[in-house]
């Protein structure tokens, strides 16, 4: 039967080995991510947009890349879905945006801020996400 020292060896060797593989894959991933995410398009606007995104904890209601909260819509493809004018209007709205019941915080952003956020969301929409979000396969076309 397995002895305690063998069990410890299994733990130590396994952990070191898989941590090593993980670090190696991380290096490879970091090398490949700039191309996959179009890092060259991360302009100062995109970056300011990201800061606004974080300062207001947008992820506390929405998801982006499928990460965040489940209270408000997925935003990865929001730029494509809604277009600039719509998004700018809701970001600049002085009263809570509430098209179908759910209320959004009224940020009353300046036009500049709204444009920055839009640039960030537009950039996010162009990242290659390995097929996410999937095409709705049962969509009725009529």
């Amino acid at each position: 039967m397995l002895s305690k020292s063998q069990a410890r060896l299994f733990f130590v060797v396994g952990t070191i080995f898989f941590s090593g593989v993980f670090l190696w894959l991380t290096v490879d991933t970091l090398n490949k991510m700039p191309a996959q995410t179009n890092a060259q398009n991360i302009s100062p606007e995109v970056n300011r947009g990201k800061v606004i995104w974080e300062d207001n904890n947008c992820m506390g209601c929405h998801t982006l890349f499928g990460e965040g909260a489940y209270y408000a819509p997925e935003l990865t493809k929001a730029y494509e879905r809604r277009g600039e004018a719509y998004i700018r209007a809701l970001l600049m709205s002085p009263t809570p945006w509430s098209p179908q019941g759910r209320k959004m915080v009224a940020y009353a952003m300046t036009e500049q801020e709204a444009n920055d956020v839009i640039a960030f969301i537009k950039w996010a929409g162009e990242v290659d996400l390995n097929g996410f979000p999937a095409e709705p396969t049962l969509k009725q076309t009529n």
């Binding site: 396994g14 898989f18 593989v21 991510m33 990242v127 996400l129």
Partner: peptide, 29 residues
């Protein structure tokens, strides 16, 4: 304590690379 080592061994064996289940759709390879 012997089985404790086996269990935490299994944790890291699967869990470290298992981080990949969050990397499917965020712009990683």
């Amino acid at each position: 304590e012997k089985w404790l080592y086996v269990i935490v061994g299994l944790t890291f064996l699967s869990g470290i690379l298992g981080t990949g289940h969050h990397y499917y759709y965020i712009g990683a390879p």
